[in-house]
Structure formats: structure tokens, C-alpha cells
Simulated assay, not measured.
Amino acid sequence: MAEEVILAKGSSFMEPFKGALVTYLIPESCYDEFFLNFNFLDVPCLKILLSKGLGIGIILGSVMVKLPQILKMMNAKSGEGLSFQSVLLELLAITGTMAYSITNKFPFSSWGEALFLMLQTVTIGFLIQHYAGRSGRGFLFVILYFALLGLVLSPITPMSVVTTLQASNMPAIIVGRLFQAATNFRNGHTGQLSAISVFLLFAGSLARIFTSLQETGDTLMAATYVISSACNGIVALQVLYYWNASAERKKKKKRKKRE
């Protein structure tokens, strides 16, 4: 009897939170398993909770993942060391993921960071052009991109085109990251590339391998994030390798300014 009273109290205590939990984190069957049966070790439900939690965390983190990169460029008033070709290919990959996920009606928690990454990547692309003295091209780039995005997301675009766009993510990611890696290698430093943004992107793409398999079951999405993780890892290693070179470069610049 006492046990039944405790269970009833536990259930009534969580009742106000049920709507939010079932909507954003766990299905109703898992809510019952956790808060009615008090079975907190149910493996399938724990996987769902972990996946949803990671997904929401990635989305929240993505709001600011490239902000350090943008601020670093604005502070230096330079896009030195950043490859515009890499930005274009990254946008292609992000757009493919967004369009494919929206068309297939995947849950927002499985792809939502793409929306925020897209906005920040477009900003970086504009700043690269702007600080290179090509503001007109920068504005044209922004206008053309959003026009093409609207076209891809419109009902007139066949599903086959959207699937092809998603399939092109892997070569786009590989070539895009290789462009950036080649730029770093050629310069002997990472320029205005933000280490914080690079490492956050690497961590996010690793986590997305699990969430995409858990929430969508789509092997194409999962394979995209595996490739993305590997390519982001290469650039992250370069950031570590050129860390001292970048620090030495900053010291030389300060000396020149004093002279």
C-alpha cells in the first residue's frame, strides 16, 4: 500500500512536465516506463533519451558554433586563411541535409543545427568577400543563395533532386574540407580560422552519427556525418599542428606595428 502511494505521488509530481517530455524528449511509452513503472534502466528508452538530448544539445550549441569564427574575422577585419570555395561546398552539404530532412519530415532534433549553421556559414562567406574588397560580390552571393534555397525547398523540386543533393554531401564535404586543409598547408598557418568553431563542429558531427541512426534510421544521413567527422578531424588536427606557428605569427605582427 505504501509503495502504491509513493508511485502515485511520483506520477502526479511529473504530470505537469509530461507534455514537454513527450513532445521533445521521449515517447509516451517511455514516459510510462520511467515515471509510472520507475524502470530507469530500460535500454531502448535510454537510447531515445540520449539521442534526443544530444540532438537538442547540438542544436543549441549550433546557434553559437561559428560565432567565434565570425567575431574573429570582424575583429581582425580580415578573412585571411579561409577558403571561399570551402564555404560554398559546406553550404551545399548543409543545404542538402536541410532539404532532405524537411522533405522526409525527419524530427527537427535530428537536423535542426543545419538551419543555424547555414545562416552563420552564409555570413562567413559574405565576410570573406567583404574583407577582400568585394562587397558587391558578397551581397550577390547572399541573394543567389537564398533564391536557390527557396527553389530547392519549394514543391516544384522533385524528390529525386533532393535525394541527389543529399547524396552529393559526401564529395562536397570531402572536397570542401580538403580546400581548407590545402589553404592551411599552403599558408603554413590557419589564419583567421577559429579553433573553437573547428573543434565544436568536429564534436557535433561525431555526436550526429549516433542521433541520425537512432532518430531517422537513414544510412545516407549517418554516412554523411561519418565522412563529415573524418574531414573535420583533419582540419582540427591542422589547428593543433599550426598552433605555435599562428602564435609566432601574431608576435611578429605586433613587433612590426611597434616598429
Rank of each mutant, 00 (worst) to 15 (best):
R208T: 14
I128F: 03
K66I: 03
G55T: 07
I209Q: 12
D32W: 02
K254A: 15
K250E: 14
Q192R: 12
T183R: 13
Y24Q: 04
R186K: 15
V43A: 13
K257M: 06
I6D: 08
G81K: 09
Y31I: 07
I209N: 08
K250I: 08
L7G: 04
N232P: 06
K250T: 13
L67S: 04
T164N: 10
V239F: 03
Y100V: 05
G133K: 12
I128D: 01
K18Y: 02
L91V: 06
S12R: 12
T103F: 06
A236R: 05
K18E: 15
E90W: 04
W111S: 02
Q85V: 09
S197E: 00
F34M: 07
R255K: 14
I56V: 01
Y242G: 02
H189C: 01
G61C: 04
T123Q: 02
W111T: 07
L178P: 04
Y31W: 13
L71G: 03
N244I: 07
V43Y: 08
L88M: 15
F116H: 01
I173G: 00
M221N: 08
M14C: 08
I59G: 01
F141A: 07
M1D: 10
L140G: 13
S11Y: 12
K251Y: 00
I6N: 06
P158K: 11
L119T: 13
V63H: 03
A222R: 02
I156Y: 11
L36E: 10
E33M: 11
I128C: 10
L60H: 04
V22D: 02
K252I: 06
I26M: 09
E28W: 01
Q85T: 14
M98E: 14
E3V: 12
F202R: 01
V226L: 08
F38V: 04
E28P: 03
T219G: 05
G188D: 11
L50D: 05
N184S: 04
I56Q: 03
I124C: 01
M64H: 05
L193R: 01
I124K: 00
T95F: 01
G81C: 12
N75Q: 13
L213A: 14
C30E: 10
L178G: 07
M221S: 08
L54H: 05
H130E: 11
A167H: 09
L119Q: 06
I234S: 04
T219V: 14
Q85W: 08
G10L: 08
K66P: 00
F35E: 00
K77A: 14
K47M: 05
V65N: 00
V22S: 08
M159V: 15
L41W: 09
E80Y: 00
V5I: 15
S83H: 11
N37A: 11
R177L: 09
L7E: 09
